[in-house]
Nucleic acid binder design. Structure first.
Lengths: 195, 195
DNA sequence: GTCTATATTCTGATAGAC
DNA sequence: GTCTATCAGAATATAGAC
């Protein structure tokens, strides 16, 4: 979209972040140039540097904002009914990630492209998110041999939904949530037993 | 490592692939230059083109070879005892992926950077691998609401091991295999039941 | 705040000597 | 088969006009 010279700081900033999010998710951070982002926004490349000091910071802030939003949404569980909390966590994780496919993709794929300090900060936020699930597993009488492993296994399983789920496919998101909750429930449920 | 002029085709080819595998896994396909690969191998950049027509083909062949090797190793299960086959699959997937961390990383992260025809070929191979697990789930009397979803959930869960497992850590690989098998067994086991 | 123009470095790939 | 040299273009980031 062509643009004329003028003052648009109030809307250009969000548009830069949105364009970067979209392009980084599609093609990868390293494969996307500042020129491509500028073209998507409809400005010249120099204008981008009013909104980010450099490309690396742009990536980092997208990832950080996503992780903070995820974390803020995740810590609202009541923590008094572990089974209900676990179910809520499962449904929440699937829904939240479904609503933000680009941010999820970047948060999992572009860790390699973060400079060490930025990487450490994102990893710390990820650890906090894992701790939410871990504390739910700790609070309940779940049949879990190793809480840390169960945490990582469940999160990996749930996050995997975003690699194949498409709205309008064979299953609704609700049906997917239902089935994953059933699988998680059985995985950590008290019945265990022999086969 | 500096090299002198001469004929080394018998060893340079594998060294090019090994260097590309390593660098692509560390930094991402788009972030790695042919010059970096050449430096890692110890040749000048022009020499690389004796072994690949271009960078894209180098990536594609690494991914294709990995998927073919994975598939060949996976179809050896007997298919007559579903529960044993499922356990073997779980242990196999974890061990195989643990032995090839760079190839696994690339196979899951660099799909975006494949040209359409190459992407289709890799996706087909991935589908065949998923079909191996799906047929095991089909052969047994497993308590699975949707076989396709269970297949994808299990593979995502197992593949996630490679994001955190490190030899010499708190748990041995055997212990990890054991715990994942226990989780998968409960997830698809016949006991199901209420909570 | 955005533009145009530019500095500097790097990119994938090729040509031809040895 | 590897080297050196090179092409043509693209990369990030900056400077200064408006």
């Amino acid at each position: 979209m062509a643009r004329t010279t003028g003052s648009h700081s109030d809307i250009t900033g969000p548009r830069v972040r949105a364009a970067a999010l979209r392009l980084f998710a599609r093609h990868g951070f390293a494969a996307v140039s500042m020129r491509q982002i500028a073209m998507e926004v409809g400005v010249q490349v120099g204008a981008l540097y009013n909104y980010t000091p450099d490309k690396q910071t742009l990536l980092f802030e997208l990832m950080r904002d996503h992780m903070i939003e995820l974390l803020r949404a995740a810590v609202t569980f009541p923590r008094d009914m572990p089974l209900a909390d676990l179910e809520n966590f499962v449904r929440f994780h699937i829904a939240f990630h479904h609503d933000r496919p680009d941010a999820v993709f970047i948060a999992y794929m572009e860790l390699r492209n973060l400079e060490p300090d930025n990487f450490a900060e994102i990893e710390a936020l990820r650890g906090q998110y894992e701790a939410v699930l871990e504390s739910i597993l700790e609070a309940g009488r779940f049949n879990v041999a190793d809480r840390k492993i169960a945490t990582l296994a469940i999160i990996a399983m749930l996050t995997g939904v975003s690699t194949w789920f498409r709205t309008g496919g064979r299953l609704s998101l609700g049906a997917v949530q239902e089935q994953y909750w059933e699988m998680v429930r059985r995985m950590v449920g008290p019945e265990g037993g022999s086969v």
